[in-house]
Simulated assay, not measured.
Amino acid sequence: MWRMGNLMRGARISEKADTGTTERSLKESDGDIVVVLQDYPTPEISEPIYRIGEKLKVVAQDVYWWRVCSLQTGKENYIPNSHVAKVFHGWLFEGIERQKAEELLCLPGNRVGSFLLRESTKERGLYSLAVKHRTVKHYRIFRLDNSWYYISPRLTFQCLEDLVNHYSDFADGLCCALTSPCLSATIPSLDTSNGAPPVVMRRNFDWKKVDRSQLVSTESCSDNIVSFGVRNSIAAYLSFSESQNPSRTKANSRKKKSKSVYALPDSGLGNIDYDDDF
């Protein structure tokens, strides 16, 4: 198994290609998907077989050359592994630098709120969120000793997927809410039955109509109007806050649990760290 942060995905690579075209790539694991980082071959040499931003399915791997199949065209050929980056969950890009993240987000098909997460090329386990707005904004993702993640220290997440789900529901201090993973509009809709659930956007959300008991419940219920990631984050925040103040914890233990309510601030977050050099 291959581990990236708190996310674990298999890294199995198919030994040979099927006879189908794009249909055979619709049920593959995330670890088999890569994105082209630069045209190959370069236009100076010949007409490119694969272009920057194109998503490919890995058929077989060698040391330097990978056999791949385009998810858009079904075209199968070889490409140097230095020209591609692996993509997990559709939004977690492995081994790309800040400038390349901006190039990918500025490609046609990406809209305001398109985003990607990338791991630091300097230190493994450190991540950054890039979001397309008027320009591409970058936010550093920090990690606590217990391996939970946060952009603002007042709101922590057990895994990167929970972080993405939350900021897809609310901008909560970011330049805008997350709308869709980078380059997701350039490929057919994938079957996510064996992968990560899709990011779901909610609009015109009215907190006054939400049963407060749902806010602190971490049970996964399909009929709960609040996403599991948000509920899990709220519960984590309450737990983290209480652990920092033992006297308050003792006092709260004498009160009814129903009194614990998480209140969202009216203003944006003041403690978000912009990623200027990561």
Rank of each mutant, 00 (worst) to 15 (best):
F88S: 05
P108L: 00
K75E: 13
T121M: 05
W65C: 01
F88Y: 14
R124L: 10
F93S: 06
S82T: 11
L104D: 07
K122M: 10
L92S: 05
K86M: 13
K122S: 11
F115W: 14
N110Q: 08
T121V: 15
L116C: 00
R67Y: 05
P80Q: 03
E123G: 01
G109H: 13
L105H: 10
H83K: 13
E119R: 08
K100S: 01
W66E: 04
H83C: 12
N110K: 06
C106W: 00
R67K: 15
W66T: 04
S120A: 02
L104C: 04
R118P: 15
H89C: 12
V84L: 03
C106R: 02
R98L: 07
S70K: 09
L117M: 14
G90P: 01
G74I: 13
T73I: 13
L92I: 14
L117E: 10
G125V: 08
C106I: 00
R111H: 12
L116I: 01
G74L: 14
F93G: 03
V112E: 13
L105I: 05
H83L: 09
N77C: 04
P80S: 03
C69E: 02
Q72K: 13
E97R: 10
T121N: 07
V84H: 05
S120T: 07
L71R: 14
V84K: 02
E102H: 04
R111E: 15
K75Q: 14
L92A: 10
H83R: 06
R67G: 01
T73Q: 13
S120G: 05
E94Y: 03
K100W: 02
L92Q: 06
F115N: 09
E94G: 07
H83V: 04
G95W: 03
L71P: 01
V87Q: 15
V112M: 07
N110C: 02
S114K: 04
S82R: 12
G109S: 08
I79K: 00
I96A: 03
G90Y: 15
